[in-house]
Design a protein around this nucleic acid. Sequence first.
DNA 1: TAATTGGCTTGACATAGATCAAGTTCTTTT
DNA 2: AAAAGAACTTGATCTATGTCAAGCCAATTA
Lengths: 200, 200
Amino acid sequence: MLYDTLRQYITEYSLQSITEEEFALIKEAFKPKRLRRHQYFLQEGDVCRYMGFITGGAMRQYSVDANGHEHILRLGIENWWMGDYESFKMLTPSKYNVDAVEDTELLQISNDRIQELKAVIPALKRMIEVMDERSSIASQRRLHAAISYSAEERYTEMQSTYPALLRRFPQTMIASYLGITPETLSRIKRQLLGKKSKIS
Amino acid sequence: MLYDTLRQYITEYSLQSITEEEFALIKEAFKPKRLRRHQYFLQEGDVCRYMGFITGGAMRQYSVDANGHEHILRLGIENWWMGDYESFKMLTPSKYNVDAVEDTELLQISNDRIQELKAVIPALKRMIEVMDERSSIASQRRLHAAISYSAEERYTEMQSTYPALLRRFPQTMIASYLGITPETLSRIKRQLLGKKSKIS
DNA sequence: TAATTGGCTTGACATAGATCAAGTTCTTTT
DNA sequence: AAAAGAACTTGATCTATGTCAAGCCAATTA
């Protein structure tokens, strides 16, 4: 049921299995939560007290700049974690908003509880370590792309890295994630179609 | 002497002290290395087998794109770690070069040895966990800046976040780090001087 | 001291991508 | 079925930043 994907996720990332007692602790600590489309999970200025493990639906993390433009930092779907990690860890007010792009259900856990669980469930501790490593690496890659690549290159890279996200989110959001306007993304797509047809 | 700053660094990050026996292990595992200005620590295509803890000098990590342009991803000075973490962790060929910007001395450790040490020195393990957390957060911040801010905003943010780097590296490299050309950085600085004088 | 070099600035021009404004298509709601 | 509204496209312009070229200054080397 609901918690099985989480259990599988932990096993997969930690490469360790968890006992039934441990699983019971997890089920008790992670609370199910439903979000309607457009509903906030976190608002700018609040401390991110929970991280959510998405079991169904789609979410985004974004900031709003001085001109009212949104900049999407992260997109997430089933089996992804969502929340502002910086705020969650440091207990500082978040610079970001997190909301649901589709009706979403997730399992949320508080900072306190995850600390307690880490202490008693080795697999969970290991999972978090691995996630930190990977997220550090993923951010570095995306930074590299943002600094070094053109908009078109970033789009094609996204096509190969996260095809699922491309299909799932409206292009306005994909554009924002790539750091460009929807108009530019539209034109890029047309250009790429032209190129493709020449190749094949 | 040479290893004291490393010891202090570990204590500071892990919030744990290390015993003399542990320190002896560390001294044996971390090998001192000297690099002349412009000398490579890592070249694109090689696997990053060592991470370096800089005890003196200045280094940079950068990629070279199809047009021969360099893009600096990270700058490092005393008390910073340097190397390509992705390649080091995953044992994959690196997309980056790492070299010395000044004559540099560092303490280097191999992947194998750090794994062994992590298993027997809790403080070291904890230090790495904390570093992963923070680097994950720092990358996210920089990504946010790269996507959301103008060149000028990124520069002023860098002024407040890493003043030491600004003083230490030539502006060509600062520009590359910010993802702009040296010419643009030069013009931005002039504009900012104008603004400042108006304020005061 | 002269020569060389690397780093910085400045100007003129080029361009990727943004902005603004319409118009189209496809859903969703009523 | 009508109406409203997303999401996307397209065109015309604008702007931040890049590119190319020249010159200057300071530091290092001969």
